[in-house]
Every structure is written in structure tokens, then in C-alpha cells.
Design a protein around this nucleic acid. Structure first.
Lengths: 231, 231
DNA sequence: AGTGATCCAAGAGCGGTGCTCTCTGTTGTT
DNA sequence: AACAACAGAGAGCACCGCTCTTGGATCACT
């Protein structure tokens, strides 16, 4: 009983250790250069032994993907929680800035989850939840604004909201009972733009265009706040 | 003379053919799976022979990158040219829609240029010009609007424009003589958002979020047009 | 026309990759 | 104590990028 628990614990520990080394390799060399053999070498074990813990390189990558999503989500949520509840703008900025800060600090992990998908690799179900955390944090700010009456969900409506999954809209608290919850498309647009901004910066597309990335980013975030109707 | 010309022509032809096969492999399997050996196999030559034409796999990739930028730029420019000169909104939409259409039709090539950068690969100078074409097309629409008096560059100004390279602003025709050319940051934001939208769609982040991608995209593009002050 | 330089393609080979299979020793269970 | 599950090692397969050497073909120049 306890013995079996021991064995399982040892196994879990080694699994964690492999992932840890892999994460370090990923951070320094990028996903494409992540090599199972190199990880095994660093741990002083045969490459074949690693397959006892991760059935394939892709499974190792999946683990790193989930860890990255969770690290980013935690960073965003913590920053949001530290802002005054009633200051919607501050909370909005907190989520966005924390997201960018994490991305700048972990460019390779960011690229792993928000860059080109690995060909032939299909993200498993287990990544969906963690991947949604930043978007949910943004939605929560808007939803609180609607609830408090500070955000008018019907203002500036277009027909695009029906292009969004209604179940999701309901779940995020952006629904208003109307058949056309006009804020959803704008919220998703803001979410998309947030990561578009970060990706362009990290991937170097604004290198000869934007001089002061942080200032440019902060201004864009404020514009996005206005787009989603924050006061 | 003509003989030397012949040899050079044959060489250029084979170079083109290698790139052509590589582009097909890229389109079907993605950049990560692009193998010089596989290209050589398909052409019936030894892998070592390919190195006479491309000194490394990265140089082959560079060629494909430039070709992708140019194909995308051409598509956007052609679409823009087909819209009525005075209809700024139509021209704006044309550029955006053509960009998305090209990306959807060539997802792997799009991912090559707008996805995660290849680690250890630095884009050479030669890619800068082609990479700018879509952004320039967007700027041209705005600049024409300013010149025609239909777009007020001073409206809705924030301090973020000084975060943008002033030389670039001048070159794009977005300057107004003022020290603070207030449209620049918004134009770049629109440009960034355009590719953020496409990337999120192609990389699957909006899979369980947006139902009708085209409609959602068109609406977002219209919003962007408003952001940059189009009438 | 002959000849030396140049170019091209091929082949072998190096060190690396992901992954599989087989074998051995250990460890937990009964 | 016997057995079954498991962990690790090693060899091996097919592939990769890239280099070096070798043997022909082709070119340019005297």
C-alpha cells in the first residue's frame, strides 16, 4: 500500500524532473530544438528510459504547453486580483500588462502556445481549460462592469455577435438576455488584439516600426478597454 | 558568352525548381518538416548536390519566406487596386480580406512568416521590404484619406504616437507636420490586429469561440477602419 | 585544339534526431 | 520465497543537416 505509493511517488517525481529539464531546454533553445535525447543526457539516463515516462516527444510538449498556459493564466489572475475591485480600467490593464510581462519573460514558452502550431500535433482536450484563463479574466472584468451598470452591453452593437458561440457568451457572463449580446464580438476582438500585439512584438514584426513597445502597448490596451465599453 | 549565359540559365532554372518543390513540401507538411533530403529525392538528385544551389536549409527557408511575403503582398495590392479609388472603406476591406484569403489558402506559408520565428534563424535584410507590403497598402488608404480631407489625423489623438518611429511615419504619408502625428499608432494597431485576427483563426485559438469566422472578421475589419478614422 | 580551371553531381561518412525492441536487474506483491 | 510488474540500458532502424572527397563534364583561354 504505502510501498506502491512510494513507487508511484518516485515515478511522479522523475516525471516532474524530466519536464523541468525539458522546460529549461525549451526556454533556452526553443520548441523545435527540444530533444528527448538531450534531456535524457542531462539527467544521466538512456534516451529509451525517458519513454517510460513520456510515450513520445509530443506528449512531453503537451505537458510543457499546459504548464505554460497555467503559468500565464496564474500571472494574469494574480495581477487582476491585486487591482481594486471597482476600478475596471485598472483590472483590465493589470490582466493585459501581466500577460505581456509573462510573454516577454518567457518568449519561447509563449511562442510554443501562441506561435505556429507544430505540424501533425493536435492539442489534446486537456489544454483547452488552461488556454482560456486569460480570456476569462478579461471577460470577468467586463461582466463585472455590466453587472455594476458601468458597462452598457447594448451600446455600439453590430451584427457580428451572432458569429460567436452563444454558449460561450452565456458562460462568460457577457449575455444580456437579448438574442444578440452585442459585447461578445468586441470582447473577443480585444482578446485577439492583446495577443496580436504581443506576438508582433516578440516575433519581431514591429522591430523597425515601434520604438517604445511598452508605451505603445499600454496605449493600445487603453483603446481596447474603450472598445469593450469600459468607463 | 552565350554558353556562359546558358550555364547560368540552367543553374537559375534548377534553383527555381528546387525552391518550387520545397514550397510544395512546405505547403503540405509545414516548415518544421521541410527536409532538404526529401526535396533532393523528389528531384532525383543526391542531397549533397542541393548544397550547390542553397548553402543551407536556412537559405532555402529564406527564399520561401521572401516568396511568401511577396505572394501575400501582391494579393493584397491587387485587391486594393481593384476597389474604387475614392471609396476608402472598400479599399480598406479589400486589403484586409485579401490578406485573410491568402492566409487561409496558404496556412503553412502564413505560419512560416507570421508564426513563431525559427530559433537560431535571423531574417536577413532582404525580407524587410516584402514584409512591409501589406502594412504599406493599409497606410496608403489612410494617407489618401488624409490628403482628400476625409480623414482627420488629429482626431482622437493620444500620446502613443511618439512611441512610433517618426521616419517611418513620414515615409508612410501619415505625418501631418505636427510633432505628434496622431494616426500612426492607430494605423499600426490596426495592422497588428489584422494579423492577430488571422493568426488566432489559423492557429486554432478561436476554434470553440467564433462560429462564423468570415463574418466575425469582416465586422472586426470595419471596426478597425473606424479606429483609423475612415469615414 | 589542347589544356588547365571551373563547375556539377554523387557517395561515403559524421553526429545528431525520434522511436522500438530486447534483454537484464530490481522492486513490490502475494 | 516465488512471481509479476516495472525501470533502465543498449543496440538498432530510418531519418535528418551538413562536409569532404572523388570522378566527370563543361567552360574559357592560349
Amino acid at each position: 500500500m504505502t510501498a506502491a505509493g512510494t513507487r508511484a511517488r518516485v515515478r511522479a517525481e522523475l516525471t516532474r524532473e524530466i519536464a523541468e529539464v525539458a522546460r529549461r531546454h525549451l526556454a533556452s533553445d526553443g520548441a523545435a530544438a527540444l530533444s528527448l535525447r538531450a534531456v535524457a543526457r542531462e539527467l544521466g539516463m538512456a534516451s529509451s528510459a525517458v519513454y517510460r515516462y513520456f510515450p513520445s516527444r509530443d506528449d512531453l510538449l503537451t505537458r510543457l504547453i499546459v504548464e505554460a498556459y497555467d503559468a500565464l493564466g496564474t500571472a494574469a489572475e494574480k495581477a487582476e486580483a491585486a487591482a481594486p475591485r471597482t476600478d475596471l480600467r485598472a483590472r483590465w490593464r493589470a490582466v493585459c500588462s501581466a500577460t505581456r510581462a509573462w510573454a516577454v519573460a518567457h518568449p519561447h514558452e509563449y511562442a510554443l502556445v501562441y506561435g505556429s502550431p507544430v505540424p501533425g500535433y493536435a492539442a489534446p482536450e486537456s489544454t483547452i481549460g488552461p488556454a482560456a484563463r486569460v480570456g476569462e479574466a478579461l471577460s470577468r472584468v467586463i461582466a463585472d462592469g455590466i453587472e455594476a451598470g458601468a458597462v452598457d452591453p447594448a451600446a455600439d452593437a453590430t451584427g457580428a455577435d451572432s458569429a460567436v458561440d452563444p454558449g460561450l457568451v452565456e458562460r462568460l457572463g457577457l449575455s444580456t438576455g437579448e438574442p444578440n449580446p452585442s459585447l461578445a464580438a468586441r470582447a473577443i476582438l480585444a482578446w485577439t488584439t492583446l495577443f496580436g500585439l504581443i506576438s508582433f512584438e516578440l516575433f519581431g514584426h514591429t522591430n523597425n516600426v515601434v520604438i517604445d513597445h511598452e508605451r505603445y502597448f499600454d496605449d493600445a490596451v487603453d483603446r481596447l478597454g474603450t472598445v469593450v465599453g469600459l468607463p
